[in-house]
Amino acid sequence: MKTLLLFFLLTLSALAQERIQWYASWDMGLRQARVSGRPILLIAAAPHCHNVSGIW
C-alpha cells in the first residue's frame, strides 16, 4: 500500500512539473498543424508588463 501511495505521489509530482511545449511562430505552428492534422491551441501574450520584460 505504501509503495502504491509513493508511486501515486511521484506521478502527481512529475505531472505537476510538466509543461506545454509551444511553437513560437504562427507560420511554423500552422505548418505543423497542417502536416500532422492536429488541432491548434493558440495563445498570445506579451512578454512584458508595462514594458518591463521578463514577465508575461
Binding site: Y23, A24, W26, Q32, S36, I40, L41, L42, I43, A45
Partner: peptide
C-alpha cells in the same frame, strides 16, 4: 494531442 502555438504579442 494539439499543436500548441504561443505568439509573443
Amino acid at each position: 494531442q494539439f499543436v500548441c502555438i504561443r505568439l509573443a504579442t
